[in-house]
Design a protein around this nucleic acid. Structure first.
Lengths: 349, 349
DNA sequence: TACAAAAGTGGAACCGGTTCCACTCGGTTA
DNA sequence: TAACCGAGTGGAACCGGTTCCACTTTTGTA
């Protein structure tokens, strides 16, 4: 087991001081005679020298690393987000430390402490909603924070990147209304999250424009974890006045909801028209392929990273920025006009 | 923006030397009087002191970090693997830096250099197959390497964790043979990978046991990236002597293959019986639900991390270890006896 | 030709931990 | 009572970079 060369090894081999080597490594930090620069560079490649990140971090006070804090990578949404973030970060020479919270504020707090130990320059996170003071402390210590997909009401001065939640929910609802649906159910994230509230808002706005009076029983805000989506589907369809259209706007619950629909043998779109917030590749392999709101995950990742890196390099003006990107509406075969039969059936009960 | 307290701040506030604080932090490194220990601990919690990871790394020479090198996190297999690795690592106080290679040896090499800069204690990787000398150099510099899912023939002295590839392929093949299939196609990973070869081996063994002569045209080893699976499906089914059974044993190509089957309107299992190597939750939401070989990803993650951490702590005997875990066979509705019609149709051509 | 400004260089402190070592102080043992 | 041992402590070097500063050598300008 060999030992990796250090900057002093390089200096000695090149017959210069460590200062010169360091200046070759960081060109902005001072002048070096062209001849010596060549000399040093050749010794570096000959020895295979690479500067230790830890040493650089120690003296710089912060690392060229960003933390990515998400619920879990088993969720395709976060997996793809992580994939894009890692990819973009790489092209900027930045590493990504991934932490998962399982939607548990306690684990989230632990993750933030760990990232603080590591002196990360920034954090991209989908916050659980707790730990308000912890996020504040993090920012106070100079860590740049960007929330993605969700925001926290109590932390209004944090950068946020998300899709246009209200607009997306509105478009999905409008689509069903245009097909003739009047009883449209919405399964969405907790009303305590900005995402949940905005999507409910967009849904309500669409109903109001169509002069359909909203039925609170048709709106189900379920937690991001657990089987809340499936349960909501079950209880919605068990109702005597069951909906003819369903929008699953809680990304984490799409799979659970669709699974329940399949298990119950619900015929789509005959019995129920369905729109899901998910661009999982498998949604078009189900039968029928599901009409979906596709979140432009690459854009979310790109903007998040741009914000974090921009702040880290101090090239962004002060003041929190909110970036909302458009989501795509992808019509497939899971929506149709409501069946006469279904309408009369619910009417006769 | 405040400044985080350092060990010297703690020492000063507690009226002791930094040595004492350090010994409180690392109990094995020396004695501390019980009274002073209490004193120091109380100052630590009062100041909210946390040791900087970079400083510790610098003097220790290596970090409490492991690198995870996979193709991409958009692949559910790697996403779940990463999820479990991150989770297990957390419970050991270890952080995970994720790097993706896009199956490109050049990007892989870059990732390894980066991990070296970061002085990671270990690397868990799905190797692309190239960079043999680079992997060697990494190990030579004291980085513990564990390959997961695949091995590299040229690197025989590296720990490997994978499923029982041969056995799994054999079981899938046996299942189709038992149903009466004789023309069974196999889509698998490149024959240059251990995984690909083992699965072909298991498949051939099953055929031989049943005295079915293998047809080389029915075995397609396609790259992990790209649309090789879909193309293979297309060309297999276009053949005058098309198979009645199909095993997709290249995890990365399952989605592409199934997509093509759906696009071509192939009736499953009437026209074709299908078994996939994938435990993607969506495989049971397709119609029909797909019979699958489920890789115990949690086990792969657990064993990989145990190996890496075990080596890092030097509590494992020398010599490479190979761990193969059993995969589950999950029968669903995508397999049936071959249709007479299909048989006669292919016979009449 | 004289002198100021700029380019180039190396020494040394510093970042925040860990660890070796010398030292003091009590209590045992010969 | 002297020699010895171990627990407990603080000083200082060290890990491998970066950066400030003092110093020497060019170069440019009056």
């Amino acid at each position: 087991m060999k030992k990796a060369p250090t900057i002093r090894d390089v200096a000695a081999a090149a017959g210069v001081s460590v200062s010169v080597v360091s200046r070759v490594l960081n060109p902005e930090s001072g002048p070096v005679a062209p001849a010596k620069r060549e000399q040093v560079l050749s010794v570096i490649s000959e020895l295979g020298y690479r500067p230790r990140a830890a040493a650089r971090e120690l003296s710089a006070g912060h690392a060229l690393t960003v933390g990515l804090v998400v619920t879990d990578l088993a969720n395709p949404f976060f997996a793809q987000l992580a994939d894009r973030v890692v990819w973009e970060a790489r092209s900027h020479g930045v590493q990504v430390v991934v932490m998962t919270t399982q939607e548990d504020p306690h684990l989230e707090a632990e993750s933030l402490d760990t990232l603080l130990d590591r002196s990360v320059g920034g954090v991209i996170a989908t916050p659980t909603g707790g730990n308000v003071e912890k996020w504040d402390r993090l920012r106070d210590l100079g860590v740049n924070v960007v929330f993605v997909d969700r925001a926290i009401a109590e932390l209004s001065d944090v950068d946020v990147v998300s899709i246009e939640n209200s607009d997306s929910a509105r478009r999905a609802t409008d689509h069903l209304i245009a097909l003739g649906h009047e009883r449209i159910a919405l399964i969405t994230g907790p009303a305590s999250t900005s995402t949940g509230r905005s999507r409910i808002g967009g849904y309500r706005a669409a109903l109001e424009s169509a002069s359909i009076s909203p039925d609170p029983m048709l709106v189900r805000d379920v937690p991001f974890r657990g089987d809340g989506g499936g349960d909501a589907v079950g209880s919605l369809l068990a109702s005597p006045d069951a909906p003819t259209g369903l929008i699953v706007a809680n990304t984490a619950q799409v799979q659970s909801s669709v699974r329940r629909l399949v298990q119950m043998g619900v015929r789509i779109p005959d019995d129920l028209s369905v729109i899901v917030f998910d661009d999982n590749p498998w949604t078009e392999l189900t039968s029928p392929p599901l009409t979906a709101i596709r979140q432009p995950i690459g854009m979310l990742a790109l903007h998040s990273l741009e914000l974090v890196l921009g702040r880290m390099q101090g090239r962004l003006p002060a003041g929190a920025r909110t970036i909302e990107v458009m989501a795509d509406f992808v019509p497939r075969s899971s929506c149709a006009a409501p069946a006469r039969l279904a309408t009369s059936k619910s009417a006769t009960r």
